[in-house]
Simulated scan of single mutants.
Amino acid sequence: MRQIFLDTETTGLSPEQGDRVVEIGCVEMEARQLTGRTLHLYLNPERKSSEEAVRVHGLTDEFLAGQRRFAEVAQEFLEFVRGAELIIHNAAFDVGFLNAELTRLRQPPLSTQVGAITDSLLMARELYPGKANSLDALCRRLEVDNSNRTFHGALLDAGLLAEVYIRMTRGQKSLVMEEEGESQVPAAGLLDTAEVDLSGFVLPVLEPDDLEREAHVAALKDLDKNGGVLAGWPIISA
């Protein structure tokens, strides 16, 4: 199944109170490799963003007023994600907003149009209980470079989430798109090796010589300071 890392930015915190989506970012992965396909949409929310939201994502009302509305990009978005597994950090937040947008268009919920929805925040909480598991915290813990994250951008955050996810699930150091014909070289210490059946191997047994037998007995006697050691250790007779 295709996997798509998804993030949104919004005008505020509550779709129930009329807050809207202002940005959608999607990054596609297949067979644990980035495909290079992305979807990045700025949206006119038809309302003002809260001051706190603008401080988070940096998208002004003036900029968003010139963008397309969700109704104009809904099919493009749904075609991109249809049938895929969506991986979202704190999925309830993003899915709640996207479902509100779909409801306005009399479209069915997002979960019915994709293959699955996975919440990477819940995964992180299971892996790192009691620790901070925001995307920034995971980037620091897993050594994902987020130095360009001055504001929360949907496409940037989706890309960071892809890096975080692959490290959480397998420990691979990076998601590098290969040029055609190139082979991927795993990071040092993280080589993937095939399982080997060891049942067919016969290991040789080397019998001790007389000097080794005598040294073994002497070593056990030396250890037997308080008694009982020799009784518990087999002595190879010389």
Rank of each mutant, 00 (worst) to 15 (best):
G58A: 03
P108M: 06
G159E: 01
R69P: 00
Q107S: 08
V185A: 12
G159T: 01
R213Y: 12
C26R: 08
M1A: 11
E85H: 11
A53M: 12
L102D: 05
D209Y: 10
V73T: 14
T35N: 02
V21G: 03
G159I: 07
R68E: 15
T118K: 06
R69E: 00
S237E: 15
A187Q: 14
P45Q: 03
F5A: 09
A215I: 10
V205I: 14
C26H: 06
S111R: 04
D145L: 05
L86R: 00
Y165K: 01
G18T: 12
G115M: 02
H40M: 03
E143T: 11
G18C: 07
I87Y: 07
L230Q: 12
I4W: 02
Q3C: 04
L59M: 03
A218S: 13
C139F: 13
R125V: 04
V202F: 03
A31L: 14
G25F: 01
D222R: 13
T11Q: 02
H89R: 05
P129Q: 08
G153C: 07
I166Y: 00
R149D: 11
A116C: 10
L98T: 06
A219G: 13
N99R: 00
V54C: 08
G36S: 02
T8F: 07
K173Y: 08
Q3Y: 09
L105C: 04
S147N: 03
G36R: 03
A194L: 14
D136W: 06
T103I: 06
N99A: 03
A53T: 08
T169P: 01
A100W: 05
